[in-house]
Design a protein around this nucleic acid. Structure first.
Lengths: 187, 187
DNA sequence: CTTCTCATGTAATTCGTTACATGATTCT
DNA sequence: AGAATCATGTAACGAATTACATGAGAAG
């Protein structure tokens, strides 16, 4: 399996529900919480081409169009290998490294779980995230102690670090809440 | 002024206190909260070269070394233009766009303020961040209502969005707290 | 039939990553 | 002197951004 960018997985995730055009995807990226990704054609169309070459998506041509007419509006659909790749990505083991600096990607994975894998897998995912966060928050607290020992109080670097800790704690609280809510629904 | 990557500004920020070698910077990136950046030589050394060419940093050669001996350990120091560029970056107006998808960069800026600009400017910065966050959180709440109307409850996409809102609220609370603490210290 | 918006393509550039290579220091 | 580690350099590649170009459809 080739190295896959987050953008590519985001596209696969958006296509899991229904076929969409590159333009649709761009609009989603700009108008929803996924603003993170560029709305420029220069990123999405090449990514679509890569996914197509890999066999993970396929073009749906409107009836009666020539094969070489690439300028017409056309949708892309997830293929079976594409869905498998998406599911493999969603089900990947969550590592502490993921929690440390790929939290956004983890949340993207979670957001795409509906319609792909079942609730109990989502619950397991959140359990893993929770575990990783507990560890990470612990490390951050000890780092914070170290730092405050050799830094003047109210140093902006220290204050920024405090935000980092608070954010992780928020995320942890959310993971626990959400896990409980999903578990409740399961029974 | 050429387009400057965040990595370049991170390097300038780290050099604001004392001269350091590329290796020092790499170690900082891997062992502190700035893990985000790569520890690979392939990113830092070219970035240092770019900053040097731009006149923002300069090499400090150990006494008695030839000018073309680039393989020896050598530190880089911020030049006056470099410090000016750093300060200009720190003092940039905070836009809602910044708050929307460059929060990490905003926090990096805040972390580097100590030793570069005075506290009252840092307070103004946090005020701007607070204002932007209030607006952004408002927008997210209305988006959330829209979303929940057309999405089944406990949909993972919706739940992930909830985390986004909570995170922004945490950030907002931190900005307010921290602003108050700094203001107190000012008087 | 012209104008606006929808929709796609692509070339140039730049940056980061990976992977490898190699010089300098230090320790034993 | 040999080994380990410190410290830097660079080539190859991939992917994102910017900027530009252009075709297709809809509306008047």
């Amino acid at each position: 399996m080739p190295n896959t960018s987050t953008l590519e997985m985001a596209i696969l995730g958006l296509l899991r529900g229904k076929p969409q055009t590159g333009y649709d995807l761009r609009k989603t990226f700009t108008t929803t919480a996924m603003r993170h990704y560029s709305d420029s054609p220069g990123s999405i169309y090449p990514a679509l081409r890569r996914l197509e070459n890999r066999g993970w998506i396929r073009e749906i041509r409107p009836a009666g169009s020539r094969a070489d007419d690439r300028r017409r509006r056309h949708e892309f659909a997830l293929t079976e290998p594409g869905r498998e790749a998406l599911i493999a990505w969603l089900e990947q083991q969550v590592t502490v490294e993921d929690v440390r600096f790929r939290l956004v990607e983890l949340m993207l994975r979670f957001a795409f779980m509906d319609g792909c894998i079942n609730r109990s897998d989502a619950v397991r995912f959140l359990d893993q995230v929770t575990q990783g966060l507990v560890e990470h928050v612990g490390e951050m607290h000890s780092k914070f102690k170290e730092m405050s020992a050799k830094t003047p109080p109210l140093h902006t670097g220290l204050l920024a670090f405090e935000l980092g800790i608070r954010s992780m704690e928020t995320q942890l609280a959310w993971a626990r809440d959400t896990c409980a809510r999903l578990r409740e629904k399961l029974q």
